[in-house]
């Protein structure tokens, strides 16, 4: 795994930019479905590793809090939404692909 190793200048720039920014994240899950559980576990691991101390995470069970899901036009769960910093990004799935998640969160260049 090389994800913890900065390999390019662009990544460094992005990381530096991101390092100073505060993240507001929403994860929509559906009860105890395997993908939901996996997504929670994966996201928490990523946040603790890359955003420790500067993120605000809300995890919403669309079964128990359907009204909160409606606001964000959720179609499929699990869906992670990066509300801040802009631009808003959606990542659908159980967040097992760490690379994809990091890119989606602008923590890694494409």
């Amino acid at each position: 795994m090389t994800k913890n190793r900065p390999s390019t200048g662009a990544f460094e720039t992005a990381a530096e930019n991101a390092a100073s920014e505060r993240y507001v994240l929403r994860l929509y899950i559906a009860g105890t479905t395997p993908a939901s559980s996996k997504s929670v576990e994966n996201l928490r691991a990523i946040c603790e590793e890359h955003l420790k101390g500067r993120y605000e995470l809300m995890i919403i069970d669309v079964f128990q809090q359907p009204l909160l899901a409606k606001d964000e036009q959720i179609i499929a769960v699990p869906t992670l939404i990066k509300k801040l910093p802009a631009p808003l990004r959606r990542i659908v799935g159980d967040l097992s692909n760490e690379h994809r998640v990091l890119v989606g969160l602008d923590l890694k260049p494409k």
Partner: peptide
Amino acid sequence: VLYSNAAFADMVAFPLERVIG
């Protein structure tokens, strides 16, 4: 916590969305 029902959230007096995770 990968999942919590509302009853547990009530016990700890947190909004449910702040319990999971």
